[in-house]
Design a protein around this nucleic acid. Sequence first.
DNA 1: TTGTATGCGTTATCAG
DNA 2: CTGATAACGCATACAA
Lengths: 365, 365
Amino acid sequence: MATIKDVARAAGVSVATVSRVFQGSPLVASATARQVQRAAVCLDYSPNGAAQSLSTRNARTLGVLLPDLHGEFFSEAIRGIDHAVRAERFQVLLSSSHADAREMISVARSLRGRIDGLIVMAPDAGSARVIEDIARYFPVVLLNPGVRAKSCCAVSIANSDGAHQVVRHLIELGHERIAIVRGPSGNVDAKERLRGFRKALRKAGLGVPRGFEISGDFTQRSGYESAQTLLGLRPRPTAVFASNDYMAIGLMSALSEAGVRVPEELAVAGFDDIPLAQYVRPPLTTVRANAYELGERAVRMWFDSARARIARKVPRHEVLPAALVVRSSCGSGNGAALRPSLEEAGPPARAVNQIERERRRPLGG
Amino acid sequence: MATIKDVARAAGVSVATVSRVFQGSPLVASATARQVQRAAVCLDYSPNGAAQSLSTRNARTLGVLLPDLHGEFFSEAIRGIDHAVRAERFQVLLSSSHADAREMISVARSLRGRIDGLIVMAPDAGSARVIEDIARYFPVVLLNPGVRAKSCCAVSIANSDGAHQVVRHLIELGHERIAIVRGPSGNVDAKERLRGFRKALRKAGLGVPRGFEISGDFTQRSGYESAQTLLGLRPRPTAVFASNDYMAIGLMSALSEAGVRVPEELAVAGFDDIPLAQYVRPPLTTVRANAYELGERAVRMWFDSARARIARKVPRHEVLPAALVVRSSCGSGNGAALRPSLEEAGPPARAVNQIERERRRPLGG
DNA sequence: TTGTATGCGTTATCAG
DNA sequence: CTGATAACGCATACAA
């Protein structure tokens, strides 16, 4: 592979000049620049990134640390990150599937010299110290964090507000006995959604009868299993908010087997708006969280705080709004079309357009 | 940040010794090693990756170039890649959302010095030259490539065979007039699936009546729109193979609106086994392509060929088997449970376990 | 077993 | 406008 020296020699100039040309420096005669460019093309030269990093002390690369995630949320977040990073002409160094915090920190350390900063997603609350530790090495932005770290910026989804919205929706539809299927206990998203649930009920002057807060773990199975508990409650709830869509779908399938009609006998709502949500019967009323935007914002926030490093570094915390998506799994109070969601307009209209935009997949695989 | 020099000074040794300790060299007295380690911990030192890369001339990093992909396939492929890369103690430099080949090549060039090789996914047939170009810089493994490049290894999905299987399944169920909704014309997955379709019919001595090969573009909308064409055919087909699940689902929704019963009046099959496939009504018979494994294999193949560099470099091409997943959208010939798929066993049994494994998402968002 | 010295490919600081 | 040359942080051949 050709180096800057080879180009310099071929162009009959010094390495300094070649370097200047490649950085678009104005301090070089255009004739000389052309010479250099010709030589570079001829030798198929491009600068060595490692050498640049070493010399300039920055890598033009952002690291991304993720837990072992599956599914749409993961890929959308990455897409958002990649998009925003690309806009800054940076690169993404991805490291996912981290089991525990210890592993995360060792990976983060091994990244020294290769990245300028990190986007970290640590959903469990136990990792506070680890995060602080990592943040000593690089500027860190937390993505939907399970914990607030004093020293770093963060961007997260309005879990509490989203839950609040959907529960308020149920209340507006006339429900007074509303249950929740909770998420895993260590998970902060779950905790926040529970908080929003409680707040909405409290605001409406409704109580939460004993046993109306059923435990779950975000898996479809736990939703399925919650049905039994749910149907055994007396008085029986008329509506239930499942803390995520997977559980809502599991629950609905159990209800269907038990011959309980949704939403007539029991209204069901979820959270996340996974792609499935609009296809189950009845289509699921839920809350949309935009993972793409979450990733994008995290990166923007990183660059903002990097640029403001000279000024006072005051860690911000952005919260992305969550949007209620009304479908039919909660009924619609008086009229069937009281509050139609976009997706309900029928396939050839706007709905399909949106589906296409979101789900287009030019590759077979 | 502490450098190797600081550690050397603090430990009272030379930088060479520190370097040796960090590489686990046996040529250092254990007492000295402890000294060094203590100093390193004390100074919170870890080696600078850029400097290492520059010195050793390798980056312990694999680049991953992807087109603008959404959805499960994307994230699963990345997971597989990440997993395999991690096993080799390498890192992943990800660059997705590439619109065209030109962009891809410029990104690839800019990676010089930062990566040791590339996993490239280029589904459109036009990029052959670009690939060859990139392969001059780094060893490249193609992931589900749209084109065979002479100089690099590749791993892809058995598109043709998968299509062959599902069409043969239709034939075994007694269908004789089978149509296809094709994928985009430039796309190699689509082409291969069409090939498998034709082959299965030919083998069975069945013809493809004029008009039975309907064009589509892998979007749900195009599947929806294909229904009209399909229902206008005389004689009308009794079964249709949609080249991917999105189109199959769009088609089924159109059929449902038109009052055409699936599978009684028209059997429908898809390809990909997207998560949705088991939730639509009726659950979709399709072909499963394992994206996780695809990514994993690509990486393994890269390391294999990197290690064999000394020996003759003969580009291999692996094809991952595709598996027929029988659900109910094609009916089941004589008996309803003639050939039940795992997913049909009912929620609390194995089916849900699998769903959980596949779709567990410990994070709210 | 340890230290010295050189090179890796760039950038950047000075002189010209 | 251009050219030497000293960093950048580490690995390693060679010497001791």
